[in-house]
Amino acid sequence: MTILARAIEVTRRYGDVLALDRLSLDIKAGELVGLLGPNGAGKSTLINLFVGLRRPTSGTVELLGGSPQDPAVRRGIGMTPQETGLPESLRVGEIVDIVSAHFPEKADKGELLERFGLSDLIRRQVGGLSGGQRRRLAVALAFAGRPRLVFLDEPTTGLDVEARRALWDGVRSFHEDGGTVLLTSHYLEEIEALAERVVVVGHGRVLADDTVRAVRDMVGVRRVSLVAEDLPDLPGVLGSERADGRVSLVTTDPDRLVVELVRSGVPFSGLEIRPTTLEEAFLAITSKEGAHV
């Protein structure tokens, strides 16, 4: 399959901050890839490199066989702007026009607005749109130039359930017609609903790159936290960290861990078991401390 976007051993620093750390990633034609990671994990930096806004400190970024810095190459991509920055005094139709003007192949304006439920708002100024309407307009703009590859950064943040599902349908139909999508989201549900492949980034690296199913299984990970001085070696601990006197253990089998803990006779208090978010689980897994606290 053709590779549409590729990062090879990409490192990006902002001064002393290491945003991406020798990260490699391929996005193939026809894929719908979910990019997951906590804030500061490097998701935005990665997208900014792919769309040509930033350059890597070292390593190579390729887009549609060329450089993302080349405007002609970017004819094949679409991106969502942050809806907070849309020019307030322009009308919905005018914003679509100015974006479309950059592309040789343009989506039909009426059809595009229809697809994102904005047909009635074509003459409305952006300043008069609700947050959800702005969000939908921002996502629609990614499709204005009939792209082969779209980057959707948090496409449904702040949308109600109905609007979110409508937007998912739009993304799915683009994908079914052969379009390629790189999607970031805070919502695991969204990634599950749309993506086939999930890439988890943290600390500027790819922590996991697998099918949705494999990643979903990892969500079964639980966080067991307690107050204790010293802990023996416990079974099934994927990662641990100590903060404010509490020890947090990430495990796939909390029941067995607690049984072993009690059996070991070590004094402890304040036992809590709770589900982790996917992001937490991955952070814990990669925390540099060993399993033994």
Partner: peptide, 14 residues
């Protein structure tokens, strides 16, 4: 200061 400006830079034009 507006995020619209970097967005314009992702479009196929310098």
């Amino acid at each position: 200061e507006q995020p619209w400006n970097p967005y314009l830079r992702t479009l196929p034009a310098g």
